[in-house]
Amino acid sequence: MRNCREITELVSKGLDTPLGIGERLSIKLHVMMCSRCRNFLSQTQFIRKAARQYADQMFDSVKKSD
C-alpha cells in the first residue's frame, strides 16, 4: 500500500503525464479512504486552473494595453 506522500507524488505526476492503470487505481482506492489526499487531489486541480487563469489575465492585460 502506498502512503500519503507516495499517493500525492502520483497525483502530482498525473497532472504532467498519463499514469498507468495500476497507478490510477491506487490513487482511487486511497482517496476513498483518505480525506486529506482527496483534498490534495482536488486542490492541485484547482491550482492548475488558477495558474492558467492567472496567465490568461497577464496575457489579456497586455493585449488591452496594445
Binding site: N3, C4, N39, F40
Partner: peptide
C-alpha cells in the same frame, strides 16, 4: 515538514469552501 516519517500527512489539506 509536509509528511511524517511514515509518509502520513503532517497536518495536511483541509477542505476548502467554494474554491
Amino acid at each position: 515538514d509536509f509528511f511524517l516519517g511514515n509518509g502520513h500527512w503532517n497536518g495536511g489539506p483541509n477542505t476548502w469552501q467554494d474554491p
